[in-house]
């Protein structure tokens, strides 16, 4: 049976690297991959075109990640709104995911430290989480 993998992405170099790693190291024929981007709620969504732009941005992120992933037979892309770590864990539980893969840090610039979203997922996920370290 295929391993169901959830790749949580925010389009950062770290999550693109996670996608790349997934492509290189795990047999793509044995995986069913879901790409998830979580849009954090923002006041701008209430403004004109705010939400439309945010959706567009989200689609771009998913597209970039899909490209980094290269060709894989069954890739599904999903974009949801909510608190990122909660939505990632919830999605994984609801969809019987076997493994969550994510980059170590998102867009934050605080050096070497693990990102807040990765850490939060890490702390509470009942499902195995793989954290991929970006290239130095």
């Amino acid at each position: 049976m295929a391993l169901r993998v959830l790749l949580a992405t925010d389009g950062s170099p770290s999550s693109l690297r996670a996608a790349h790693w997934l492509k290189n190291h795990l047999n793509e024929h044995q995986l069913s991959i879901t790409l998830l981007h979580v849009m954090a709620p923002r006041i701008e969504y209430g403004k004109q075109d705010g939400f439309i732009n945010a959706r567009k941005h989200s689609e771009e992120i998913l597209e970039a990640t899909e490209q980094a992933l290269g060709c894989c037979p069954s890739v599904e892309t999903v974009s949801v709104i909510g608190v990122p770590h909660e939505e990632i864990v919830r999605f994984a539980i609801d969809h019987n995911i076997d493994l969550i893969v994510m980059g170590r840090r998102g867009h934050s610039k605080i050096g070497h430290w693990i990102g807040s979203v990765s850490f939060a997922v890490f702390q509470r996920s009942p499902i195995p989480v793989t954290i991929v370290e970006p290239d130095q």
Binding site: W21, L99, R104, H112, W113, I114, F119, F122, Q123, R124, S125, P126, I127, P128, V129, T130, I131, V132, E133, Q136
Partner: peptide
């Protein structure tokens, strides 16, 4: 249910992917 200190330190220091099984 906190992340163990050793697993956290491994995630923090490792240059290769780390999978933590909760």
């Amino acid at each position: 249910s906190l992340l163990g200190s050793v697993s956290f330190a491994i995630v923090h220091q490792s240059p290769i992917p780390v999978t933590v099984i909760g």
